[in-house]
Design a protein around this nucleic acid. Structure first.
Lengths: 219, 219
DNA sequence: AGCTATATTGACCGATCGGTCAAATCAATT
DNA sequence: AATTGATTTGACCGATCGGTCAATATAGCT
């Protein structure tokens, strides 16, 4: 087999796999691991069920692969945070990035939420390992900001959880938000209002000054 | 049949129904409507599967009954709010009541969350009806507070969503919180810290003064 | 054209799904 | 003791579950 055909084969395979992953993400995010059926995923993907298993092996392997894909999208968040950073700018960026991620990958976000709701049977190691370290390192820096008098001495973990939950809400509970606001879906103006509101309340609530750059960008 | 026996019968029936409802709440909250099986609920309740159906009719009827039970628990929240109320006291109460409800009915809260995640197929009417009215009436009063200069002119809907999401997080995503904090479960001291943190950030972030009474209670 | 490796898919497997039913049991009244 | 209505539950139903497999089709290489 030449290199050329290998590339062609892989490209074709990748295209099909992306179709399957996308379909599976939709079904798993709505009904959770147990509630999702391979037949429903196959129908969503427009492929026979046996084909899903040919590419993905088992239901569990497909599910775990989706979880890993979603987790990898988190790598860049709050990456360049230092004790010398401006808290207002960093927290603003965090809020905006989180809102953007939720909008970009709504199914992935809901998939994650469903896994946590079920007690995180597949994610316990990740939560108590990588993610805990991620949070701990950011929390340490936030605590330094507080010691430097840049902000109130709030518990950094709780601050991260607050931003986490407040932003995630508009993705994972979009059905509730839409139902209450009486909209089919949130538009760009809604998202800007929400982001601005969260920045205002959270930064002010932590005694952080909103930087000019952030303010202008919002305006 | 005498009145006495009728009472006795109903008492026995109520006891069994509570057992079933409790078991079903656990299973539904973990796996959602589709992912839950009557056999799993029966095992959890320690009853044969046919008995579940004898008392509850169908899986769907059981599920809807659980949703209604959970919704009814919300009736007392933010009930006595008026334009003359003290925003700090009311918002504090809201945060505390919400945290308490989550702790008291964790399975019910997760059941609700799973239903919303699935797109609220059984709750759409409730969300766009009763709940929307509930939110709208409270939002109107909060807006009056802002107009009276008692707090910042934030969007009342977004403020309600913020308190909603921030408190709900510790119930619905307890697996994530526990995993990251490295605890088996949150204790009473944790909950006090969380409540205090949320009161501090949200009230300060909305330009509301924390009332003395509230402050003392927290202290 | 013939060969080989990969891809496709209908048919099928045992297990489990929600739900039904009839036979057995229980409890209270006469 | 006999009767009656409510309760209990094992057996069973067709449908669907995750997964296997063999037959077929496809595509690139010689």
């Amino acid at each position: 087999m030449t290199a050329e055909t290998a590339i062609q084969d892989n490209a074709s395979r990748d295209r099909i796999e992306r179709t399957i992953l996308s379909a599976a993400e939709q079904v798993f995010s709505q009904h959770g691991y147990r509630g999702a059926s391979l037949q429903a995923i196959a129908d969503q993907a427009g492929l026979p069920k046996a084909n899903i298993l040919y590419y993905m092996g088992t239901k569990q392997a497909l599910y775990v692969r989706l979880l890993n894909r979603m987790m990898s999208r988190w790598n860049a968040v709050l990456e360049d945070i230092t004790p010398d950073s401006d808290p207002g700018r960093v927290l603003s960026d965090f809020i905006r990035t989180k809102m953007m991620l939720g909008q970009r990958y709504p199914e992935g976000s809901k998939l994650f939420a469903a896994e946590i709701l079920a007690g995180a049977p597949f994610l316990n190691d990740y939560l108590a390992g990588e993610l805990r370290d991620w949070v701990a390192s950011r929390a340490a820096i936030i605590r330094q900001w507080a010691e430097q008098g840049k902000m109130d001495a709030v518990d950094p973990h709780l601050l991260i959880f607050l931003i986490w939950s407040a932003t995630q809400h508009y993705t994972d509970y979009s059905a509730q938000v839409s139902g209450i606001l009486g909209r089919d879906a949130l538009n760009e103006a809604d998202l800007q209002s929400i982001t601005q509101f969260l920045e205002h309340v959270i930064l002010k609530g932590c005694g952080v000054q909103q930087s000019d750059a952030t303010h202008l960008a919002v305006k």
